[in-house]
Design a binder for these strands. Structure first.
Length: 574
RNA sequence: CGGGGUGUGGCGCAGUCUGGUAGCGCACUUGGUUUGGGACCAAGACGUCGGAGGUUCAAAUCCUCUCACCCCGACCA
């Protein structure tokens, strides 16, 4: 690739629209351009990165025994109506009509499509197990696209679907995908952590996410992990053994009484005013859970975990009541809700920790008033569950020895054990050995291709630009001719460019009539792993300068040795 | 959808309050000088000031409506 012949529109200034480093560098480095909110054009350099990642994914998927297909982007709405996701997913599913006014959707994922394919084609268990995958554009009409490729509306994803006759088969298929994923990310040069996750809207019973640990603001998710035993889960799902238990367990329960707390709405205000620690207070959070209203009780110093709460409430999603809703439900303004005398039609879900508390503070369901010395016998609890978020510094729920640490990560892959949700809805069955009709047991497995690319940048960069890992870099080396106006230098660089290409080494050749500083700055920004500089000093000595992207200083290498060196690097790093 | 903000040449912005016919830096074109970390001189090209309507002798600027984009929140890979 000669820079004068391809299209790499680098930007000198940061575009105003980009917040995240990785997003800024994609824009500035001439990798992508935005078409409209959340929808991007992939320029030549980006396209090469996509190919690199896709090829690695393809090789590992094929090796695992899966087969590549391509499914349509545009689907008839009918299939989505049959599984119910047409109604469940909501506006995120892009809907449109064709010219005959037939309702269509843009594929947000392809469970419906593969399942409907196989329901018509698979008759016998002898065809199983089967795993089909594709690398395809997905469309999700995100409420709020942001962070460039990380939360776009249109993105590239590898999605695989496994089909088995029984759970044992699914376990094997799942493990194969987990192994393939570990191999994929390792080959991409990315360290990932596999964490347990909630299944969410996908349905199913068991799921993992593969996170690239970035520990930057780009890390969208918090992961709690145990350095001792390897336990890891995202914040939604993580469990923990608390370090500081109830305040004083041996305290004698007293009978409660009201106190005036004028305008004290927050835990901080109330505890400061009453001079008690936050863990002697129970906060009552009012949620809408489907048709019902629930009151969630957690200790004052804890954070509610809405995923855990919705699981406990048995609904897909909970939503915090607004001020008017709280007032209607409790008869008091926000900040004064409490479980004592809670309306009978509101179910009370208490966090496990609350059960150990004695003589605590709660809201009085009346303005400017709290109750002190409240005990569990003073109110009704319909259900007890862990509904608080685990915190860093608490003990690991598995080994119980080490304390959990918190890290920030970007999800690049996920695996779901789906079971029969889709095969049941669409009637996808096969006959088993005994001649009985059996529903297909499914799994689905995704890798965000474009997202992985951006996660890699978020992980590997410095203040000057990207620093790609060799296996997914758009090219191995960046050949800079210091002065393309100088005939002798330019000829030497041309020759090296030809030789590199003949040797099968991918090279981006900066043959522009630009000042050296401009070329170096662009090379750092674009971030290829190696830079070769052809300059006047080298012309005399027969040596060119070779520099690794993150190295402090270059080294001088004999012209004839550059290609063998790079070939050796290629061999060891990909 | 709620809250906040921005739309002016390819990019980054000033000008809007106080109306007078559009400006700066970078990029771009041509010529020249330069050439190892974002050069210099000279000459140029590029704008329906997001769109529609209105007020006015006169609108980037005031009014009404509308669209797009960005940030915070809910949602999510």
């Amino acid at each position: 690739m000669r820079m004068t012949r391809t299209f790499i529109p680098t930007l000198r200034d940061d575009p105003a629209e980009a917040e995240l480093v990785s997003h800024r560098m994609l824009l500035r480095g001439g990798y992508i351009r935005k078409l409209t909110a959340g929808i991007y054009i992939y320029l030549p350099l980006m396209q090469r990165v996509i190919h690199k990642i896709s090829n690695i994914v393809r090789e590992e998927m094929d090796r695992s025994g899966a087969f590549e297909i391509t499914m349509p982007v545009l689907h008839p709405a009918e299939i989505w109506q049959q599984t119910g996701r047409y109604y469940d997913i909501g506006p995120e599913l892009m809907r449109l009509d064709d010219r005959h006014k037939r309702p269509m959707v843009l594929g947000a994922t392809h469970e419906e499509i593969v399942t409907s394919l196989l329901r018509g084609e698979l008759r016998s268990y002898k065809r199983l197990p089967l795993n089909l995958y594709q690398i395809q554009v997905k469309f999700r009409d995100e409420i709020r696209p942001r962070f460039g490729l990380m939360r776009g509306r249109e993105f590239l994803m590898k999605d695989a679907y496994s089909f088995d006759i029984d759970e044992a088969g699914l376990d094997i298929a799942y493990q194969k995908m987990v192994d393939a994923y570990k191999a994929v990310f390792k080959r991409c040069g990315l360290e990932t952590v596999m964490v347990e996750s909630d299944t969410g809207a996908m349905g199913g019973k068991f799921a993992h996410e593969f996170m690239v640990i970035v520990d930057t603001e780009g890390g969208e998710a918090t992961i709690l992990s145990c350095p001792e035993c390897g336990y890891a889960a995202n914040l939604e799902r993580a469990e923990s053994i608390p370090v500081n238990g109830p305040a004083k367990t041996e305290e004698a329960p007293q009978s409660y009484s009201p106190v005036e707390t004028p305008n004290m709405k927050t835990v901080e205000e109330v505890t400061a005013f009453l001079n008690v620690p936050a863990r002697k207070l129970v906060k009552t959070l009012m949620y809408r859970a489907g048709e019902k209203v629930v009151a969630a009780l957690i200790r004052g110093d804890r954070q509610i975990n809405e995923t855990k709460l919705s699981n406990a409430a048995g609904v897909p999603m909970v939503e915090m009541l607004d001020a008017a809703g709280v007032e209607q439900a409790t008869g008091a303004p926000v900040g004064f809700a409490g479980p004592v005398g809670m309306r009978a039609d509101i179910s009370v879900i208490a966090d496990e920790e609350v059960k150990a508390m004695i003589n605590f503070v709660v809201g009085a369901n009346a303005g400017d008033r709290h109750l002190i010395n409240v005990n569990l016998t003073d109110f009704r609890i319909d259900k007890t569950a862990t509904i608080r978020s685990a915190e860093a510094g608490e003990y690991c729920p598995r080994c119980r020895k080490e304390r959990l640490i918190s890290r920030r990560g970007i999800e690049v892959g996920n695996t779901f054990k789906l079971g029969t949700k889709y095969s049941k809805a669409l009637g996808a069955t096969v006959l088993d050995e005994a001649g009985n009709e059996r529903l297909l047991i499914m799994g689905s497995y995704g890798i965000g291709i474009t997202r992985t690319a951006q996660a890699a940048i978020e992980r590997f960069h410095d203040d000057r630009g990207i620093a790609w890992p060799v296996p997914i870099a758009p090219a191995l080396c960046h050949l800079v001719c210091v002065n393309s106006g100088d005939a002798a230098l330019s000829a030497a660089a041309d020759k090296l460019y030809d030789d590199l290409q003949k040797a099968g080494i991918e090279v981006l050749y900066d043959d522009r009539q630009e000042r050296t500083g401009v070329k170096f700055a662009d090379a750092d920004l674009i971030g290829l792993p190696w830079r070769i500089t052809v300059g006047a000093k080298g012309l005399a000595s027969g040596m060119w300068e070779l520099k690794a992207r993150m190295a402090d200083a270059p080294e001088m290498v004999l012209a004839g040795e550059i290609i063998p060196r790079l070939l050796a690097i290629l061999k060891s790093e990909s």
